[in-house]
Structures are given as C-alpha cells and as structure tokens.
Design a binder for these strands. Structure first.
Ligand SMILES: NC(=O)c1ccc[n+]([C@@H]2O[C@H](COP(=O)([O-])OP(=O)(O)OC[C@H]3O[C@@H](n4cnc5c(N)ncnc54)[C@H](O)[C@@H]3O)[C@@H](O)[C@H]2O)c1
Ligand SMILES: NC(=O)c1ccc[n+]([C@@H]2O[C@H](COP(=O)([O-])OP(=O)(O)OC[C@H]3O[C@@H](n4cnc5c(N)ncnc54)[C@H](O)[C@@H]3O)[C@@H](O)[C@H]2O)c1
Lengths: 218, 218
DNA sequence: TTCACGCTGTGAAAAAGTTAACAAAGTCCA
DNA sequence: TGGACTTTGTTAACTTTTTCACAGCGTGAA
C-alpha cells in the first residue's frame, strides 16, 4: 500500500481522536458525530470531517462515525502494519517516566531496549526494558533494524548519540534534550521544546484573550 | 505597553532562538547572521528575519544580529516584565523531572509551589519547591495571584484539578496528562500530546521522504 | 407519500504561515 | 573613488491549513 501522504497536522490530530474515541467507547458509546469529537478534541466539526476524509473514513448522517471503524481506519493510516520497535537513550528521570508512559498508552509502540552511560544502570531491567551500554547502540539498532529512537540524554550528549543512531539506520528521532540536533535530511526529527512550550503558555496566559486563535469553541 | 500580538508559531520559535543564541554567546560569539541562526534552529533565513522583525529587532548587514540585543528583545517580547510564578500539580516522575528542568532552563519562570495528593510527599521540599496538599491549591494560587499551572497528574484527576486551578484564577495551563481538559474560553490550555508526538515520529520514520516538509535545509 | 430535519462530504473562500526576491546600505578591495 | 559583495528589511507570491457553506441523503413525522 502506498502512503496516502497525510498532512503532518492531521496525523497529529488523528492520534488524539483515537485516544478520545477509545475513551468514549469504554463509556459504552458506539458512534459519535463530528461535532462531538470536535468538542472533545478542541477543534471544529469541519476539521474533524476533513481529517477523517483524509484517511478515507466515512460516517453516516444518522449515526455519525462508528467508533470501531474509526479506530481501525486511524490505525490503518498512522500505525505500521505491525508493532513498531523503538529504543530509548538516557534512562534518567524523564527516560524512566517515558518507558512507563509508552508501555501504558502506546500499544503499537514498543521500547525494545534502553541505553545509558551510567554503569549502575547498565544491565538492569526497567519495566521490562533492558538497559545496555551506549557503546552497543550501533550494534543492537542495526541488528534489530530499529527505525525510531527517543533521546532523553543531557543536551551535551544529544548530537553524538544522534549521530550514532543515524549511522545505525534510525529514520525518526524524538529528541527531548534542549539542543537542536542535526541529521541528514532523510531522518525525521521531532524536537520537544518544553522551554518553548512553557514560555508560550506563560505568554498567552499574560495576553489572555489571544486564545480564541487556539481553541475556537467551548 | 500593548501586546504587539505575536503569532503563536513565532512565539515558539523566538523561545528557541533565544536558547540557541545564548549557547552561542557562551561560546564567545557576539553576533550572528540570520542564516546561521536559521541553520541552528532548523528553519529558513527568511523566516528568522521575519520573526525578528515581528519583535522589532533589527540587525546590520555587516554584523548580523547582536546577540545581546537579540536576547533582550526576545525577552521583552515574550517574557513578562517580571519573573513569572507557576505552580505544579502532581509531583510524580514527570513532575519531579519538570521541577529540575524549569529551574535549570527557564530563568524567567519560577515554580512557586507544588501540590500532590500523596501524603508522603506533602510537606517535603523538592529542589527548593515545597509540596502542599492539593486541598490548598485554591487558597495558595489565589493568594499568590498565580496565573500559570503545570499539570502532571494522572489523566483521571486532570479535569478536577484544572477546575480548581481555574476557579483560583489561573489563566494558562500546560497539561501533560493524556486527557483533554475543558476550561472557560479565557484560559489558555496547552495540551502536551506525547502519544501523538510519538505516533507522528513513528509515522514519518516509516514514510521517510515526507520530511522535506519539516526540515528544509541541511 | 411528502416534507423538514440534521449531519455528512466536499468544493470554494479565507486565513495563516512560509518562501522568494529584491532594493538599500555598508564594506572591502583594487 | 568605484564597483563587486554581502546581508538586512520588507513586499509580494506562494503554500498549507482552516473555515464556510451547501448539496445530497436517509429518517421519521405527518
Ligand atoms: N526533566 C524534564 O522534564 C525534561 C523535559 C524536557 C526535556 N528534558 C531533557 O531531557 C533530558 C533528560 O532529562 P532528565 O531529567 O531525565 O535528566 P537525567 O539527568 O535524569 O537523565 C539523563 C540520563 O542520561 C544518561 N546519559 C548521560 N549521558 C549519556 C550518554 N552520552 N549516552 C547515554 N546516556 C547518557 C544519564 O546517565 C542519565 O541516566 C535532558 O536533556 C533534559 O534537559 C527534560
Ligand atoms: N511519564 C511520561 O513520560 C509522561 C509523558 C507525558 C505525559 N505524562 C502524563 O503525566 C502524568 C504524570 O506522569 P508521571 O509519570 O509523573 O506519573 P506518576 O504516577 O509518577 O505521578 C503522578 C503524581 O500525581 C499525584 N497525584 C495523583 N492524583 C492527584 C491529584 N488528584 N491531585 C494531585 N496530585 C495527584 C500522584 O501522587 C503522583 O505523585 C500522567 O498523566 C502521565 O500520563 C507522562
């Protein structure tokens, strides 16, 4: 199947929609309307319909969208055919929290291994994830054909670790370190900017009134 | 001074620029050109110039932008006049990591107090931040006129805590819990979607080739 | 049957955000 | 001095994303 090239923003929202409708389905619901999902996700109804259209998911004017179909269609669009394996580098505070989080909330993603430089951590197993020495990143990633990595090391180490990951064949990196890493153009890097996010919240909290831009309804 | 209404995306990038030029200035640099900053921040030179224009910051064709001026101008634009105080609710794994992080990387933001429901944490001081019972959120937030809150509690608790915060006068919330919270329209909420971010990275790692959209140069 | 209703799917318009492009202005070198 | 460079500030063109608006359609009431 050829990738139908879903817009970046849409991929992001689809993931959120899925979480929401799953919650909804636990509550016993079978289907919902675009405006309901919009309200829950914080967007407009038209946007929801458009996003769902992008993944070829259609609803009925009577029932709205069936939750089953929806979850399946989103899965088909954004998940891989199979479970995807990732590695995590830097099992500090944040790294440990992430291992728990992924295990709990991302059923399609598996942290296959963790790496750290701290000898006291190497060899241990945290929540089912074994911790290896950073030295073995190249070998394990290449051998296991792992394509995605989470970076939770201090800023100073980020670039070096990233280089190793890329050399070993990683195609996507989620970087939590507060320093921009440079990679070849065919590697997708997502930079988590907590500082920027915090400062943005602080900014808009001060200029409150600008938030219509963000959250249209409700 | 009236808020010059800086676009959301620009606020975000400015924050990143500041971090980068600060690093640069530690390295001894005095000034840099738009294209240099662009490369470091992962954008285009034109965008950098445009962003800086938005905050009335101008450079010279000879030296580029002076780092001092730049940091000051960004500060003027996005920081408050004074240091801003925040509270954090939920001092678990993530909460603890965030306290360290803010202290280290966000000089203009101060976590004034933390709140938790766990009696074993209440009364303790973590990295200079005292932990109070959730019960006292309303009182302390209102009394201290705190306007920004970080939410790092489990999803189930998020809405209830948010309601309390809003009632006490908070205007901005950064929510790490994986559930969308509803607030009055005059409260700015930033939802941190780790799941969505991870799934996005996984998606683009698979369809690698879509990343030109993301990172144009280098 | 017929009509009004409410929601979907979608083209078209609008808005937001990004890139291109170039005049202006200073520097460097001859 | 003067002309070739370099980089800014900024306007205009372009792209992406969001919203509007409405036709189409199954339903249920009359
Ligand atoms: N704490 C937060 O909330 C937060 C938020 C966003 C980003 N970050 C960033 O994420 C990173 C990790 O944060 P943290 O709070 O977990 O820090 P931490 O110090 O608790 O953890 C860092 C871990 O990385 C390991 N490490 C150091 N150098 C390494 C290397 N070269 N190779 C492999 N492992 C190495 C350390 O042994 C440690 O286990 C930091 O860059 C931090 O700035 C933190
Ligand atoms: N771990 C991650 O990497 C990560 C990433 C993104 C989001 N999150 C989310 O952030 C939240 C916190 O994650 P964590 O890993 O720190 O979990 P955690 O269980 O370590 O911490 C949660 C903390 O909140 C406290 N708490 C529970 N109910 C409360 C209430 N009603 N009022 C005040 N405090 C309360 C608990 O006592 C605990 O200290 C969760 O919702 C998690 O899903 C986690």
């Amino acid at each position: 199947m050829i990738a139908p090239e879903i817009p970046t923003k849409t991929v992001e929202r689809l993931s959120r929609y899925r979480r929401i409708v799953r919650e909804r389905s636990d509550g016993g619901a079978i289907s919902l309307f675009s405006y309901e999902l919009a309200k829950l996700a914080g967007g407009s109804a038209a946007q929801v319909r458009r996003d769902l259209m992008a993944i070829g998911c259609s609803g009925s004017p009577i029932y709205g969208y069936k939750i089953d179909t929806l979850v399946e269609a989103i899965g088909l669009a954004i998940d891989g055919a199979t479970e995807q394996r990732m590695v995590l580098v830097g099992l500090g505070h944040l790294g440990a929290a992430l291992v728990d989080f992924v295990e709990r909330y991302c059923p399609k993603l598996v942290i296959f291994a963790a790496f750290d430089i701290d000898p006291s951590k190497i060899g241990r197993v945290h929540h089912g994830v074994r911790v290896y020495s950073v030295e073995s990143i190249g070998q394990i990633v290449a051998e296991q054909q792992i394509r995605i990595a989470i970076l939770a090391v201090p800023g100073e180490a980020a670039q070096a670790v990233a280089d190793g990951l890329v050399a070993a064949g990683v195609h996507g990196i989620l970087n939590f370190a507060p320093s921009v890493i440079r990679t070849p153009i065919n590697v997708y890097v997502e930079q988590t900017e907590i500082t920027a996010t915090l400062e943005k919240v602080a900014y808009f909290a001060r200029h409150y009134g600008a938030q219509q831009k963000q959250r249209k309804e409700r």
